[in-house]
Amino acid sequence: MKALHRLRANPGATYALGIIVILTLGALIGPLFNPNDIATLDWAHVAAGPALAGAHWFGTDRLGRDLFVRTLEGTRMSLGVGLTASAISLGVGVAYGAIAGYVGGRLDQLMMRFVEVLSGLPLIFFVIFLTVVFGRSPYLLFLTIGAVGWLTMARIVRGQTLSIRQREYIEAAIASGAGTLRIIVKHVVPNLWGVVIVYATLTIPQIILFESFLSFLGLGVQEPHSSLGTLIAEGAGEMEAAPWILLVPGSVLAILLLCLNIVGDGLRDALDVKER
């Protein structure tokens, strides 16, 4: 609660958090306020600029589909992939890394070699394999990206844990008779939050970009559904003739990423008790 209070005392982070909330709400309920639909082709307004005509507030793409609705849907998709995948990588990565780093010795060796083997696998092959077995679905996409994202998180957490393990308060906790699990959960993991949260906010953009890459290959989000990545890829082709097709999803992505970074930074400061 105190951390939340400190976060609110930081105006940059508060505004950034507000913008993220607005974008998220917009992505969830925004399309309801517009008569257009993500798949309807409006032949009267093909590649039209932003205008009130036909309620195409952000313009249309080269098939005459409404960009406002498509961008919001894309934001929803990208946020969903980004948040789910980083939640998975956060949960699995922190637990895995903290255990390996704290227990150390042979278990550590074994666990980290496993991580290395997994990160040695070509990701694309992995995704194609899963898509073939389970069929294409956005949920599978969430899971696959999350399943790979935790590897780096586990490495970072382990490194950090190795240094925390040497601190005197851990020795004091051992001397006071606390068990291994309790020490990991109460004395080690909370000290990791700073690093973990900054890294997680940095992975969300990476994941969003990776998602658009997969979609481009035909393994991720499929037409007529959209994500910010596919919209930007589409817009880049029309950059000279109809710049808004790139600018609208591009600005949304840029604003989103900037706000995520500012919030991550603010969170790190707010969670770090020592810095004040």
Binding site: Y169, E171, A172, A175
Partner: peptide, 26 residues
């Protein structure tokens, strides 16, 4: 586990540097 029954309750320790032997975030 056997040691934990004794240390911290019947046999305790005070460390040299109080600045670093308390967990900072608790």
């Amino acid at each position: 586990a056997v040691l934990n029954r004794v240390r911290g309750s019947k046999l305790t320790m005070i460390f040299q540097d109080p600045m670093t032997s308390l967990t900072p975030h608790l």
